[in-house]
């Protein structure tokens, strides 16, 4: 199967306050349709790696290929376009815009991509929210939702442009057990039912055990690429 994402010898240093190497020559690939989790001790560089893979951090050595395309030498605008079209994000915090309704929040990346007419984007946003069981809340403002509901809207927003890959950094970090379970079920369903490629950074070993593959990191290196 084709690679959705490929990292080759990624190296990253931080220089402030002292120079040290956070990511130490990491190489791996994620095939289309794979459901991958990254685990590891706090401070081992998981988030740092994810920001590099997401094209938001451009200060690294090595090569990153998304959908077979090299990300080096792309301009800021080109990278923004790659994120818009091919990557969906879910963070620990929901980052919804309180000025807009739930529906509009989901539509925004679609409107930015502007590959479809507005009514079609609206229709799609509604469907994505429906998959996440949020269709009753479309006209609410984000500050009228519970924490778990906000996170589900954030997942719908990540889905709007049918991205090649969804990346998530501790998406359940702020949620209680029940809500975490819901989000986890959503991700499993996206992977198994819709064959959505997913890369999830998590602390939750139980969560990780339900993914197709676990990448375990330690001190900036991958120590166990287990296939489950």
């Amino acid at each position: 199967m084709e690679n959705a994402l490929e990292a080759r010898d990624i190296i990253k240093y931080f220089h402030d306050p002292v120079s040290f190497q956070v990511i130490k020559k990491i190489s791996f690939e994620i095939k289309k349709g794979e459901f991958v989790s990254i685990i590891g001790k706090s401070g081992c560089g998981k988030s740092t790696l994810l920001y590099i893979l997401s094209t938001m951090d451009t200060e690294y050595e090595g090569a990153l290929l998304i959908d077979g395309e090299l990300m080096k030498n792309k301009t800021e605008r080109e990278l923004a376009r790659v994120r818009n079209k091919k990557i969906g994000f879910v963070f620990q915090f929901h980052y919804l815009l309180n000025e807009f309704t739930v529906l509009k929040n989901v539509m925004l990346p679609g409107m930015k991509l502007a590959e479809r007419p507005l009514d079609e984007i609206e229709q799609m946003a509604f469907e994505k929210l429906k998959i996440l069981g949020m269709e009753k809340h479309v006209l609410k403002k984000p500050n009228q939702l519970s924490g778990g509901e906000k996170q589900r809207v954030a997942i719908a927003r990540a889905l709007i442009n049918n991205p090649l890959i969804i990346m998530a950094d501790e998406p359940t970090g702020n949620l209680d057990k029940r809500n975490s379970e819901t989000v986890l079920e959503i991700f499993s369903r996206l992977a198994n039912e819709f064959h959505q490629t997913l890369l999830i950074v998590t602390h939750d070993n139980e969560f990780a055990s339900r993914t197709h593959r676990i990448i375990e990191m330690e001190d900036g290196k991958i120590i166990s690429p287990l296939h489950l």
Partner: peptide
């Protein structure tokens, strides 16, 4: 909001 817009594909 600016951060998430940039993360989801809005350019500088």
């Amino acid at each position: 909001s600016i951060a998430i817009m940039k993360a989801t594909g809005f350019s500088g």
